[in-house]
Design a protein around this nucleic acid. Sequence first.
DNA 1: CGTTTCGTTTTTATATGCAAAATTGTTTTA
DNA 2: TAAAACAATTTTGCATATAAAAACGAAACG
Lengths: 230, 230
Amino acid sequence: MSLESGNPQISYTRSTSEQIFDYLRDEIIRMDLLPGEKIPENLLAEKFGVSRTPVRAALAELSSNGFVEIRPQRGTFVTKLSINLILEARFIREALEVAVVSHVAENQPPGIIEKCEQVFAEQSESAKAGDPLKFQRLDDKFHSVLADATGFGRVSKVIEAEKAHMDRLRNLSLQEFEGQYDHVLEQHRVIITAIKSGSGTSAKNAMETHMRDVFAILSVAPEKHPDYFY
Amino acid sequence: MSLESGNPQISYTRSTSEQIFDYLRDEIIRMDLLPGEKIPENLLAEKFGVSRTPVRAALAELSSNGFVEIRPQRGTFVTKLSINLILEARFIREALEVAVVSHVAENQPPGIIEKCEQVFAEQSESAKAGDPLKFQRLDDKFHSVLADATGFGRVSKVIEAEKAHMDRLRNLSLQEFEGQYDHVLEQHRVIITAIKSGSGTSAKNAMETHMRDVFAILSVAPEKHPDYFY
DNA sequence: CGTTTCGTTTTTATATGCAAAATTGTTTTA
DNA sequence: TAAAACAATTTTGCATATAAAAACGAAACG
């Protein structure tokens, strides 16, 4: 949904700015708000039916997460993608995810296998049902279940933040990569098996392979959508 | 410096909220603003001679970096330390720093050895001169030089954010750990040597050792300063 | 004495207004 | 025509005012 259409409801259970943050973050990741697009504060305020103050707070937070770029006295824009941005995200994610699965494989926190299997099952279903949004949400879940099993809550926060940028790229190329569902699922299966085995090294290798997949998309997306890249 | 004293100057080259952010972040890391301390917006606004708006923006950013906790309609407080917070920071840092030195050792970006040696030399001097603030700033530098050598700018951002929490702990115990200067320098020396050798594995090992040092402090600080911990 | 109630104070959340910087389009000028 | 100057518009940064929620303290009450 672009800025012109729709009138999202603001509820009263959470702060206005939080809701606006979530809403915009979602639209940016879904590539509904496109890279480079201008999003003026007053337009957003009007769209949500609130003042500019909570909108500003939301935009500031989005900026600190790398989703928008605030150019003082010029405007606020959805950040463009860049090859370096994606490689950066992959580097950070790989470092953390590898450390996570190694840790999990070696410490075997109780119930972790069951949780992974559970998410895996649901994700398989959503793949069969052809529901890409649900699939992606469960993909987030799979990785956050692993990260949270370390007992370090901020780890999954950092991973999610980086994953978001990779997801933007992925959503840009959803059509071309429909067949990737099975591929992703197979890799998750390998990761689970490695954790079961208790071998930190094989868990590490499985995750490294998983992280490298983004390259397939990265090799075609920039020339196919040059406007969305720096 | 606590909230009652001092009148920091606000310049006009950067935005007001950015300057306030930097100022407060520094005071929190230096343990000048103590864990659990309340920092009301209006007091800060008065202290800086500005309105509450930029103060709010700065506090929001500090909150997203984990330095303060905003309890709606209740108040804003400097976050307390916790053993888990520190272990978390160490986990994230270790994962990233290890990936960084491995990458650097294996790719040998031009000039990296020289830059490290340079920082090392300066840091040795500041240790001799007994300047803990400068020592710490150069410690940041050492790690960010390495991280930036990967070409992925956000890596050093994430590392710095986590390092900040470990530094808070370290600054809490500066007196007891005066002798650590030489220890840190020796470890940096080992890391540089490992990078020179081009062996990702030995670089990794050296960095892992370096990261583990926080435990010495962590084993005494919580009981010595129970008020500052959850 | 302990508890509840109620008004006061404190503090954040949001709305609104104004100022300053940058952009844009038009007009003027050589 | 091309360039420069200028005015109008857009847009963010900051200040101020109001609202609402929570905390606090004193008084009333059992």
